[in-house]
Design a binder for these strands. Structure first.
Lengths: 242, 242
DNA sequence: CCGCTCCATCTTGTATACAAGAATACCGAA
DNA sequence: TTCGGTATTCTTGTATACAAGATGGAGCGG
């Protein structure tokens, strides 16, 4: 092998690689609701579990803190953050605003080949809906949204949306969507692609907005159904500036 | 004093506080152009200079890396990142899109009192323009944009814009704007506030877009004038998906 | 039985030691 | 003089030791 350090590597994987896996696991566990708000995380235990030191673990926890998924109290502990309704509203605003403008640009810029790509996504999703493959469908959904951003010629903007989307996905996972809901999402995708195809930017933007708001609309109801997941907002402090 | 640790504190300041100052200083130095792309940073030297250990220094450098201001090459060094034109384009897209929608919402939601607040900003800026106080003007500019976001009822979205704005400010600092340019910015602010006052959301959005694009328009020229600051793009690789 | 105090044991924050690789300076040989 | 090899000294990455505080339980006194 090339240059294998016994202390820095273990089972042929660097601490950084293990840290990335740790990040993925924690991110998925929190967003999916498998880890509930208030649940405790120990740097030491995570370090032991992944056979790395606290240093890379701490970097991972800092990333998750930036994403708003954790809450760190010095000398006390690290906890899964409650869902903050204001943060969810802001995330929705950011995603909706950016993707609506992007689909407008995409509609104006798209080539024939890019239209065919979107049609291929629709065909794939039709199969996934029939098969009832939720995970596959969500993966295809995300890839398609990312590609629309690429067609709008702002590919890396999706990275920003992805980081903000965690807040929205956390709520969506609580609404355990059924097959009918999956089919509706698919119809909305069809609609969006049709408008892109017909070069109707206004309609494409409207369809995208409706699409992105379907899940968001039920937030208040979800917050009532799962009060232990949410942080009770102090009814808008609306602080004044100097 | 309360509980002063000789090892953890020095001159009555925690390592975290010094780290925050370090972040501010580096951020300002890079965005202003005082530190040029390619310039080297040493974790050890920074730690010595601020009388803290490498641990908090590394956290600061990770933050700046996330903001796209640094480039870290393992076992080689940490360097000031070149300005990436694609990243600047994306930052412009993000800021323009979010602030244009925000000013529309602000126009619809604003109260009389909030209009008066904006008028006070204009009065302040008029004084600052007369005095030729660029730094003061930019501070007021930023505060006003933040408050428009607050009036749109999405205050924390400004944090996102602020982090993205670094890329744009880096370019703007290269264009060393003169007094005439300052006056033009001021007139654009007046225009925006007037439209908000008259509840004309369409005009407010158009004025905001024009305002945010004034600096952006000169980017290509600036990139030609300061080639050593920019990363030559590989003329759109446009990678294909699987 | 209740309550207070102290200590053992957690937590994260910070400093430091060590590892591995890359670059450079230096020294010797051709 | 020039080329090549070696050793020193940088760099960041990683592990670990230590510090300070908070928590909870045990033990003792009322």
């Amino acid at each position: 092998m090339w240059g294998m350090a016994r202390t820095a590597m273990d089972r042929f994987e660097t601490a950084k690689a293990k840290g990335d896996r740790l990040h993925q696991h924690l991110h998925a566990d929190i967003v999916s609701g498998r880890m509930r708000p208030g649940e405790r995380l120990s740097e030491t235990r995570l370090a032991e579990r992944y056979a790395i030191s606290r240093t890379p673990v701490r970097e991972v926890l800092r990333r998750l803190l930036e994403e708003g998924l954790l809450r760190v109290v010095p000398q006390i502990g690290t906890f899964v953050a409650p869902i903050n309704l204001a943060a969810v509203r802001d995330s929705q605003f950011i995603r909706e605003t950016l993707e609506c403008r992007a689909v407008r640009l995409a509609t104006e810029n798209r080539t024939q080949e890019q239209c065919r790509l979107l049609r291929r996504y629709l065909a794939q999703q039709a199969r996934l809906v029939s098969a009832g493959d939720r995970l596959g469908f969500f993966a295809s959904d995300e890839a398609m949204h990312r590609d629309i951003m690429r067609i709008a010629d702002h590919p890396s903007v999706w990275d920003l949306i992805a980081s903000v989307k965690a807040q929205l996905d956390r709520v969506r996972y609580l609404s355990l969507d059924d097959d009918a809901w999956l089919a509706m999402i698919f119809r909305q995708h069809q609609e969006i692609v049709d408008h892109i195809d017909k070069r109707d930017a206004d309609s494409a933007e409207r369809a995208m907005q409706a699409h992105l708001r379907t899940a968001f609309g039920a937030i208040e109801r979800i917050a009532e159904l799962h009060p232990d997941f949410f942080e009770q907002a102090a009814t808008h402090p609306q602080k004044e500036i100097a």
